[in-house]
């Protein structure tokens, strides 16, 4: 987040995306530490309309993709390749709510000392217990109980995901309260353990 108002390096128009100037159609050289919100031209916030993101991604892809630089000078070809690569990664990260939450927390918590391993009380013991139980269910091929476990975990995961938006909103209102970020960290950590369990359950047809 180097500049508040990045401008085109040729025509000096204020840029929507740091990668491309829509007013003079020029590829923009960009710093390596560019953040994904700047790539897609959205404010740094969890609130992001899926349709708007999709539209911006398509719009930028149609300008940046190497397919359109086949006969351009080599430097431009290379720039289009790197710009497209970062565009793809940025889109993938911001598109998926959990990835977006994790990425945003990483940006916001840069200067704060968060406990990166925090979990709800007793959570780890419960996860260990569930892993052992899952081992048994997998051995006995108990599909009814397996799918019950799957649904249960899935619901818990969804509950966690539903908390991201209100928590980030709360943080925007109270940026000084590092407890909110810590809470988000705890949520993200817990979700990863749940996901790990879910990955082990084979999906029924």
């Amino acid at each position: 987040m180097a500049f508040d108002e990045p401008a085109c390096h040729t025509c000096e128009t204020t840029l929507v995306s740091r990668l491309f100037c829509f007013s003079c159609n020029a590829l923009q050289p960009f710093p390596r530490e560019i953040d994904f919100f700047e790539v897609l031209g959205f404010p740094v916030s969890f609130e992001l309309k899926s349709a708007e993101l999709e539209e911006r991604y398509q719009q930028l892809s149609l300008e940046l993709h190497p397919d359109f630089y086949g006969s351009a000078p080599e430097a431009e070809q290379l720039l289009s390749e790197t710009a497209s690569a970062i565009l793809n990664t940025a889109y993938k990260t911001l598109h998926e709510p959990t990835l977006r939450a994790g990425y945003l927390l990483h940006l916001l918590a840069e200067k704060q000392q968060l406990d990166e391993r925090s979990l709800p009380e007793g959570f780890l013991a419960e996860m260990f217990f569930l892993q052992e139980e899952l081992d048994e269910l997998l051995d006995s091929v108990n599909s009814v109980e397996l799918s019950a476990m799957h649904d249960d975990l899935q619901n818990r995961k969804k509950d966690i995901e539903a908390d991201y938006a209100p928590l980030f909103k709360k943080h925007e209102e109270h940026p000084e309260d590092s407890g909110i970020l810590q809470q988000l960290q705890t949520h993200l950590n817990a979700e990863r353990y749940l996901r790990r369990l879910l990955e082990r359950i084979p999906v029924a047809d």
Binding site: P66, E81, T82, S84, I86, N88, T89, Y91, K92
Partner: peptide
Amino acid sequence: NTTIPVEE
């Protein structure tokens, strides 16, 4: 199934 081009 990651969209290309991609860099990591």
